[in-house]
Every structure is written in C-alpha cells, then in structure tokens.
Amino acid sequence: MFEAKFEDGGLFKKIVEAIKELVKNVNLEANGTGISLQAMDTSHVALVALQLNEKGFKKYRCEKSLTMGLSIENLQKILKCSGNDDQITLRTQDEEPTTLSFTFESKNRISEFQLNLMSLDQEQLGVPDTEYSSVVRMPSNEFTKICRELGNINEAIGIETSKEGIKFYVKGDIGEGQVSVKINDTEKPEERVECEVDEPVNLSFAVRYFNLFNKASALSSQVILSMSQDQPLVIEYIIEEMGSLKLYLAPKIND
C-alpha cells in the first residue's frame, strides 16, 4: 500500500515539466523514506535524479518498497487534467502495481485517474558522494538566461571558476563571448551569488542539456552548480521542504 499526497500539486507538475525534455520512461521508486527517480537521457550524457522526502508530503505511507515504471509523456497527459492549485495524491494498492492512481482535489471538484505502469529494466548508476572543488550558488533565472543567450552563439559552453566568481564563455564560428557573474552577498537570498572554490575548474559542456533542463528553474529561485575538473557537473534545484532535483552532466573533453 503506497500513498503520497502533495499539498502543492503544482510542484509535482513543475518537476515533471522539468524532466520531460530529458527522460522518456522512468522508474519511480517509493519506500519508507520517500520517493526517488533516477534516469539517463537517451544519449546517456545526462542523468536526472529526483529525491522527495516523506516529511515533505501532506500524507505519506509506503509499507513496502515499490518500483513503478512510467512514461513521462503519459504521466504528463494525466497531470494536464489537474489544476496548478490542486492537491495531488499518488496511490497504489498492490505490491506489484500495474497502475498508479491519481486524485486531484480542489475546492470545487475531485478527479480520479489511473495511469498504466510498465516494467522497465533500466540500469541504475551509482553516483559516488563527491567533494566538489568548486560550488557556485546563483539565481536560477540568471543561469537559465546565460545558457539560453550563449547557447545561441555556440553549442558548447565553457565554465571557469575562480575566487572572484564564475565565468561562462563561448567560442563559436560567428565569434566569441563571456559572461562573468560576480559574487554578491546581497541580503535578498534569491539574488545572492556565492562561490566556494577550493580548486578552480575550467570545463566545457553541451549547452543543449542545460536548456532542456532549464524549466527546473521554476522549482527554486537559486541553483547550485557543483564542479570538479574532468567530472560531471551537478545542477541542483532544492525543492523547499521536500528534497531536490539534480542533473548530472558529463563534460566534453579534449582528446
């Protein structure tokens, strides 16, 4: 028996919106501590990882660990039948569920849907706990804007960190450009830019993955970029009171 009730159903919709461009079919894992999801994009260059803690739900019960294989596209079709202010409850009865039930509740209506599940034997990757040598926290819409703008100039974006801050740069056929984001300790937390740089990094990424993921910026006003040289970058959106949505992206390397 599994039941998880989102107080703010709109949050669940934003999470699905953020990952739908990157992953097609996912295994949703539920256990006593909460819900998690880990899936690679079709090219296996990026890895999406969601973690939602049971304490963040209005109601949460999961007697036995469950794996529910679902198509993100079909999940979206069901969620499109809900309002952004609805409370959303996920529920299954059996131990080996073949469907996942959804209840959408608002002041004046209640809806019930069932999504057919599928069995997906997806490889799960072990992401080692890593001490990243550069960790940058910045406004999420700023990061989104930079990736979108520089992505117009070149398909690869460089990220260089230093004690002064973080620099995004592109060198394309049409020319080149760079954007340096300065550290600021403004009292408005959503506008703060913080850099912890033990070791500076200089990495290059395919910017299309950033732009496919940038709807996740609706989840949090700040984004955390964790980097180590020649390691995948981690883009993390903290989901207030619930957990986090992360994108791990393999860097491009000069052969």
Partner: peptide, 14 residues
C-alpha cells in the same frame, strides 16, 4: 577537437 563522453564513463552501474 572535443569528445562528448557518456555519463556511464564516470558513474558505474549499480
């Protein structure tokens, strides 16, 4: 020129 490795190169299958 640059290569784009997959994420599997960095993280092992569990």
């Amino acid at each position: 020129n640059t290569q784009q490795p997959t994420i599997n190169r960095f993280y092992d299958n569990q």
